[in-house]
């Protein structure tokens, strides 16, 4: 079994947000619209966050793309009263929407703020429903449940099925999430952290590598590489 992880090179990330949009198109997060967006309720599983520092003319800005960190020691799971959120055997943190009761303990417990609550039934202008991804894993979530990045779990399923149909063993490089595939700066890497030869485990061992809020002991499987 693989232990899936991601590495994001902040030196190559140009904050174009292609990952953000690719994620929405792949995972059917709804159109928030001006009103909900102004209340901060736009659901974007993979937001890019801006941090501005300094005064003119010595201004710096850091952008951090923030998917679910898929912690090995995820605080969200510990607080879920109904065991709706869980980590699967490949290390991906998922939510069983059927079990979720919408208490949002997990949204509060998550130090990375990657969990989004469906205050309402997701809405699209009727015409836009045509382009929704028909994969069952990403059917629009109902009102009252929490949702977040799944490392595009449907893509893993499809990659396995494809390998099987082609009569060959599944290879970890067959599978990447939508954000990794589309990344314009080739800044995202994805693979098996347990395979010492994989690119992600090598990059995760780089002296430039760090993880967000590492001191909390959450053991995220998303690594970042410091800017040059």
């Amino acid at each position: 079994m693989a232990r899936w992880g991601m590495v994001i090179d902040l030196d190559k990330c140009f904050a174009c947000q292609s990952c953000t949009v690719a994620c929405r198109m792949e995972n059917n997060t709804p159109v928030a619209g001006p009103d909900q967006a102004s209340r901060g309720r736009a659901i974007l599983w993979n937001e890019v966050l801006p941090f501005v520092e300094g005064e003119y003319p010595n201004v710096t800005m850091t952008f951090i793309p923030r998917p679910c960190q898929h912690c090995d020691n995820p605080p969200c799971i510990k607080v879920c009263p109904v065991k709706a959120t869980y980590k699967n055997e490949e290390g991906i943190v998922l939510i069983d929407y059927d079990r979720c009761i919408g208490c949002r303990f997990c949204t509060v417990a998550c130090p990375y703020q990657v969990r989004y609550f469906n205050w309402y039934r997701p809405e699209w202008p009727e015409a836009l429903k045509e382009h929704l991804n028909p994969d069952p894993e990403v059917a629009p979530r109902p009102k009252g449940v929490v949702e977040k990045c799944t490392f595009c779990i449907q893509r893993l399923r499809k990659a396995r099925q494809k390998a099987e149909a082609e009569g060959r063993p599944f290879n970890p490089t067959d599978y990447v999430p939508a954000c990794v595939q589309t990344c314009t700066g080739h800044a995202r890497y994805f693979g098996d952290l347990d395979d010492p030869d994989s690119l992600v485990s090598q990059l995760a061992a780089s002296p430039r590598a760090f993880r967000l809020l590492e001191e909390m002991g959450t053991e995220p499987k998303v690594y970042y590489l410091k800017q040059g």
Partner: peptide
């Protein structure tokens, strides 16, 4: 980043009831 928690405080504990979408409302992950 998010304002989910801030907004959440206002509505306190939402009810557990929810309606599945007509379209593809099967249990997902």
């Amino acid at each position: 980043g998010a304002t989910v928690t801030a907004a959440g405080a206002a509505l306190a504990a939402a009810s557990g009831t929810r309606s599945l979408l007509e379209k593809g409302g099967a249990p997902v992950v």
